Simulated scan of single mutants.
Amino acid sequence: MIGSFVYDALPVRVVFGRGTLSAAAAEVERLGAKRALVLTTPQQEAEGRRLGAGLGGLFGGIYAGATMHTPADVTEAALSIMTESGADCVVSLGGGSTTGLGKALALRSGVDQLCIPTTYAGSEMTPILGETRDGLKTTVRTLDVLPETVIYDVDLTLTLPAALSATSGINAVAHAVEALYAQDRSPIVSLMAEEGIRALAVALPAIIRDPQDVEARTQALYGAWLCGCCLGSAGMALHHKLCHVLGGSFNLPHAETHTIVLPHAVAYNAAAAPEAMAAIRRALGAADAANGLFDLICGLGVPQALAEIGMPGDGIDRAADIAVEKPYWNPRPIERDAIHALLARAHAGEPPLSETVSKAA
């Protein structure tokens, strides 16, 4: 049964395919920009310089200092370079760290953004910016940070290491999962979410088997686009709150944190969101949503425990306290003891509680 809902279609131009990186200069010109500052991480600086060469006279310089969780001091350094270069547009080449920096610059200066993602993070499709200052990560939602144009080039993902492809892909799945039970969910978003989860659940194991599988890479990038659309059109809940706490306060790697926490957050909400759980089960072909996700992750051979990625055991108490201090909306009430137990299971790498157990609890 379909009830009342509100759906905001976001104004993002998408160019999807193989070899589409060659359209970058034309897309910058389409924005009316004269000088573009290319943004990358230090690891992707060489790729950024090649992109700059392809921009020709539109290339205004490069800032290769993007890093995860968008620290405010990095943004200020990039803003200074952008001002000096006279750039009126930023071109973000990379994953969520680079996209986040581009958004932060757009928020402060109003410049247009062209995003060229090389991972499956999905941030390029959202009007959401997460920034870290003084050890705390906060988010803002505004169309001022929504990129104007996104170029998806499947060829750019062929060199993405298999393990990073897996965690980046599960990070994308997390966006779709939460959109299924978000406060502002809608039938349109739910359709995209289920299809996005399905595409990635099929593609990621294939990529682990053969990172050069072009069809799997295409399916994964397609799924990531859909999942990013979901995050852009619907709100966030417990899973993203926990990941923001763990990333911002403990400096844990973004994609790996999402990968580990997701099955546990789903188990926490299972009894309160039965329609969402049914959609996840259909997309995975699994009998249980939370454990289906856990099994998918196990099969990808990536970390399953927060302890494996640097989370100290004595930090669980602090993380639980921060998570309940200013909680995001969630279908199940946020209870400090239950959150602590969730984090403890995720820290140890234990399987999530099944839906049956969650309903009985």
Rank of each mutant, 00 (worst) to 15 (best):
I188D: 01
L93N: 04
G86E: 04
N291L: 10
V15D: 12
L231T: 00
A273F: 03
E335W: 08
D153R: 10
L342G: 07
E178T: 08
T138S: 15
T70F: 02
C227W: 02
V6F: 13
T75I: 09
S109N: 14
I151W: 02
A162C: 07
E194Q: 14
L204S: 05
G135R: 13
A166T: 07
E131N: 11
Y120C: 06
P274A: 02
I316L: 15
A271M: 03
A307I: 07
N269P: 08
L252N: 02
D88K: 02
I316M: 12
H240M: 09
L164I: 12
G292P: 03
T67K: 12
C229E: 10
L39S: 10
I260M: 06
H340S: 14
G223R: 01
I322S: 08
G65P: 03
L262F: 06
G228I: 04
G223N: 00
T149S: 13
G196N: 00
V28C: 07
L37S: 08
Y63I: 07
A278D: 15
T157N: 10
E194L: 06
G349E: 07
H347V: 10
L343Y: 10
K103Y: 05
P211R: 11
A77C: 06
R281C: 13
K326A: 13
A78Q: 03
